[in-house]
């Protein structure tokens, strides 16, 4: 079914707020990412990596060097924290069907972020002092624990041990590799259970962090 957009919404998009778009490189000559704070210039977006037009709301979203912006309002609104969105794709929110006429919940519109894995590079990447993980030598890496026991959503995690001691959860397919890392970096050891099987609780891969950006 083709994506549909109302004519009125499309017309609204043509009269929206202003912005400056610079197609510059993403790193400085020294290699450091410029994703900390937008400079005090007339361009708050840096350069644009991706865009989307929402057929339902008439929004035009820009994924930029400094975060996600809704430019279909005047003035434009910054939806996300300052983050270099190198890649971006918009999954249109679900629409009511004749069988389910209840509208879906209001989407987060980019204001909340959910960490789905620990393989993403933190926003400090590229800053002075940051070291990228060395997967070949886990003990030498800083390995920032994105998803900790204190920050993880306990509603779905239960007592899943993968979220303990500041250790992020991993998808089941990567469990063997993650266990190797646990041995090298953490004092935590798997709990023994009556069945001697895997600990109770949610599947580690389902233990995710959701936070307000």
């Amino acid at each position: 079914m083709p994506r549909m957009i109302s004519t009125r919404a499309a017309q609204a998009l043509t009269g929206v707020a202003a912005l400056a778009l610079l197609a510059t490189a993403c790193t400085s000559p020294g290699g450091a990412a410029q994703n900390s704070t937008p400079p005090a210039t007339r361009n708050p977006f840096g350069h644009v990596h991706g865009m989307a037009a929402d057929p339902d709301t008439g929004q035009v979203l820009l994924a930029t060097h400094y975060g996600l912006f809704d430019v279909s309002t005047e003035p434009a609104e910054k939806l996300s924290p300052t983050i270099d969105l190198m890649g971006f794709a918009w999954a249109s929110p679900p629409r009511p069907t004749p069988a389910t006429s209840t509208p879906p919940a209001t989407p987060a519109q980019g204001r909340t972020c959910r960490t789905l894995s620990v393989s993403s590079i933190p926003t400090t990447a590229g800053k002075p002092g940051h070291r990228f993980p060395d997967r070949a030598n886990p003990t030498s890496t800083p390995w920032p624990p994105h998803e900790t026991a204190s920050s993880a959503s306990t509603a779905n995690c239960g007592s899943a041990p993968m979220a303990r001691n500041g250790v992020p959860s991993r998808p089941p397919s990567n469990r063997w590799r993650w266990q190797d890392r646990l041995k090298a970096t953490s004092s935590w050891r798997p709990q023994k259970t009556a069945s001697n099987g895997p600990p109770t609780g949610a599947t580690p891969g389902h233990c995710r962090t959701e936070r307000r950006c």
Partner: peptide, 17 residues
Amino acid sequence: AAAITAAVDDGGELRIW
């Protein structure tokens, strides 16, 4: 250009940004 997106409006017209 730096990015592109498109949608079909309710009149069947292709719109491109």
